[in-house]
Protein backbone atom coordinates (compact mmCIF):
# COMPACT_ATOMS: atom_id res chain seq x y z
CA UNK A 1 0.00 0.00 0.00
CA UNK A 2 1.29 3.46 -0.87
CA UNK A 3 1.63 5.54 2.29
CA UNK A 4 3.41 8.68 3.41
CA UNK A 5 5.48 7.83 6.47
CA UNK A 6 7.16 10.71 8.27
CA UNK A 7 6.88 12.75 5.09
CA UNK A 8 8.36 10.08 2.84
CA UNK A 9 6.39 8.11 0.26
CA UNK A 10 6.69 4.40 0.95
CA UNK A 11 5.15 1.22 -0.41
CA UNK A 12 4.42 -0.93 2.61
CA UNK A 13 2.75 -4.28 3.12
CA UNK A 14 0.60 -3.26 6.08
CA UNK A 15 -3.14 -3.08 6.72
CA UNK A 16 -3.01 -1.40 10.14
CA UNK A 17 -0.85 1.08 12.03
CA UNK A 18 0.55 -1.78 14.14
CA UNK A 19 1.52 -3.72 11.00
CA UNK A 20 3.17 -0.63 9.54
CA UNK A 21 5.30 -0.21 12.67
CA UNK A 22 6.27 -3.89 12.57
CA UNK A 23 7.15 -3.64 8.86
CA UNK A 24 9.38 -0.67 9.70
CA UNK A 25 11.05 -2.63 12.49
CA UNK A 26 9.60 -0.29 15.10
CA UNK A 27 7.14 -2.74 16.65
CA UNK A 28 9.00 -2.67 19.96
CA UNK A 29 10.26 0.92 19.88
CA UNK A 30 8.92 3.59 22.23
CA UNK A 31 7.26 5.80 19.66
CA UNK A 32 3.96 7.62 19.33
CA UNK A 33 1.81 7.71 16.22
CA UNK A 34 -0.60 10.01 14.43
CA UNK A 35 -2.60 9.11 11.34
CA UNK A 36 -3.63 11.96 9.03
CA UNK A 37 -3.06 14.43 11.86
CA UNK A 38 -4.94 12.54 14.56
CA UNK A 39 -3.29 10.81 17.51
CA UNK A 40 -3.48 7.01 17.42
CA UNK A 41 -2.92 5.61 20.94
CA UNK A 42 -0.72 2.52 21.19
CA UNK A 43 -3.74 0.52 22.33
CA UNK A 44 -5.60 1.36 19.10
CA UNK A 45 -2.81 0.66 16.60
CA UNK A 46 -3.86 -2.92 15.86
CA UNK A 47 -7.44 -1.84 15.10
CA UNK A 48 -6.57 1.29 13.11
CA UNK A 49 -6.81 0.40 9.42
CA UNK A 50 -4.68 2.11 6.80
CA UNK A 51 -5.95 3.34 3.43
CA UNK A 52 -3.85 4.13 0.36
CA UNK A 53 -2.48 7.67 0.56
CA UNK A 54 -2.65 7.88 4.36
CA UNK A 55 -0.04 9.97 6.16
CA UNK A 56 1.45 8.25 9.19
CA UNK A 57 3.66 10.16 11.62
CA UNK A 58 5.92 8.21 13.98
CA UNK A 59 7.66 10.30 16.64
CA UNK A 60 9.99 9.87 19.58
CA UNK A 61 11.32 12.25 22.24
CA UNK A 62 14.19 14.37 20.94
CA UNK A 63 16.28 17.36 21.98
CA UNK A 64 14.11 20.34 22.82
CA UNK A 65 14.04 23.66 24.62
Amino acid sequence: MKLTINGERRDLDAATVAEALAALDMGEARVATALNGDFVPASARAQTALSPGDALEIVAPMQGG
Partner: peptide, 19 residues
Protein backbone atom coordinates in the same frame (compact mmCIF):
# COMPACT_ATOMS: atom_id res chain seq x y z
CA UNK B 1 14.39 18.91 31.49
CA UNK B 2 12.41 19.96 28.43
CA UNK B 3 12.22 17.69 25.39
CA UNK B 4 10.49 17.81 22.02
CA UNK B 5 8.83 15.18 19.87
CA UNK B 6 10.28 14.65 16.44
CA UNK B 7 10.05 12.07 13.68
CA UNK B 8 11.84 8.91 14.78
CA UNK B 9 14.84 8.39 12.55
CA UNK B 10 16.80 6.07 14.78
CA UNK B 11 18.08 8.36 17.54
CA UNK B 12 15.00 8.63 19.69
CA UNK B 13 15.47 5.48 21.73
CA UNK B 14 18.99 6.38 22.93
CA UNK B 15 17.91 9.94 23.66
CA UNK B 16 14.98 8.70 25.72
CA UNK B 17 17.30 6.61 27.90
CA UNK B 18 19.61 9.61 28.28
CA UNK B 19 16.90 12.05 29.45
Amino acid sequence: ATVSLRREAGGGQDFLRLV
